[in-house]
Amino acid sequence: MDTNPLSPDILWHLGPVPISRPVVTTWGIMALLTLVCWLAFRRPDRPGGALRTALEIVVETIATQVHDIIRRDPWPFLPLLGTLFLFLVAANLSVIVPGLHPPTGHLETPAVLAVIVFLSAHYFGVRARGAGDYLRHYVQPSPLLLPLNILSELTRTFSLMIRLFGNIMSHEFVVAIVAFLAGLLLPIPFMLLGILIGLIQAYIFTVLAAVFIGAAVGSVETA
């Protein structure tokens, strides 16, 4: 229990750049997802097999969910949101592979994902409404609310990051503490709970990203 969750654990140095364990796990997950997608879609002209059909069901489901949230054509947003969801599911579920630590349990990966969501919300907002109209919604009810609007943009990005990090990291801690106290079989229910937590957090992160992008695009009023 002497591991610090806030400091990165460095595996090796690539020249001057330190390579940490979450980075290695992230690249492994990216390679795995790319491999699965390449295997499923390498011949797009022919009718696909079981793997491709399963992936198409997943993509269609994500598209329907995003359409229910944003209430407009979901396909411009799906490359970002779908990739985010699939990566988060893979990253959060990597806790059940022995020897792997989920990269979302360290502060860097959720921070980068939250910054991506923050920037892409502005990008989609400016592209959908134009820069002037988009900037005007910051002073929308009254110009007095401008600092509060900017503050809410920053805090919701921060809480997006902290929510994912806190849930995954605290689950890892709980499993470690229970294994330390009680030994072999008792951590198994907590590990099952960890699968549920990982899936729910991936879902919540994606839904909140969709809500933020929808608010920036201007189709949903909640933020």
């Binding site: 806030l6 400091s7 809480s159 902290i162 929510r163 849930n167 605290s170 879902y203």
Partner: peptide, 28 residues
Amino acid sequence: SRTLFVGLAMIETMAIYCLVIALLLLYA
């Protein structure tokens, strides 16, 4: 249930802020 999940995430954020404060006190 979708709205419930989003709302629960919002509520849960407060508890996680406390967790972050505790972690800062313990480790940083």
